[in-house]
């Protein structure tokens, strides 16, 4: 596997894992309850965590499927062009008059 494809794959898997982990932390620590209970004195870390969680959620559900589909489409196109490129020179090569 090419290095950049490996990076893309692990980025996607990393984002999904990060979201699942962060969401479980949010639920088990009852972050929303803490946020509602904090009143006017919401700790900035808590707020950043919740915003990041929502951004991750939107990325995982809304953005990543489209990006994965686009990437797979490009891989398919590259594979198809590779197959075609292999076939074209074979057909076009002139045969030797000497046989």
């Amino acid at each position: 596997m090419k290095k950049n494809r490996r990076v893309e794959l692990f980025t996607v898997l990393g984002l999904v894992t990060l979201y699942v982990g962060a969401a479980h932390v949010a639920a088990s620590e009852k972050v929303a309850n803490a946020l509602l209970a904090a009143g006017d004195h919401v700790p900035i870390a808590l707020l950043v965590f919740m915003v990041a969680l929502v951004v991750l959620r939107v990325a995982v559900v809304l953005v990543i499927p489209g990006m994965v589909a686009a990437r797979l489409g490009l891989l398919l196109l590259a594979w198809y062009e590779g197959v075609r490129a292999e076939k074209v020179p074979t057909r076009a090569a002139p045969s030797s008059p000497a046989g």
């Binding site: 559900v61 953005v63 499927p65 489209g66 589909a69 686009a70 489409g73 196109l77």
Partner: peptide, 23 residues
């Protein structure tokens, strides 16, 4: 341009049809 068009088409089509089914 051909690759860009393919990527955008697939990305948009998937975003329009898949995420709301996941959610």
């Amino acid at each position: 341009l051909r690759k860009l068009a393919l990527a955008v088409t697939l990305g948009v089509a998937t975003t329009a049809t898949v995420p709301h089914r996941i959610a």
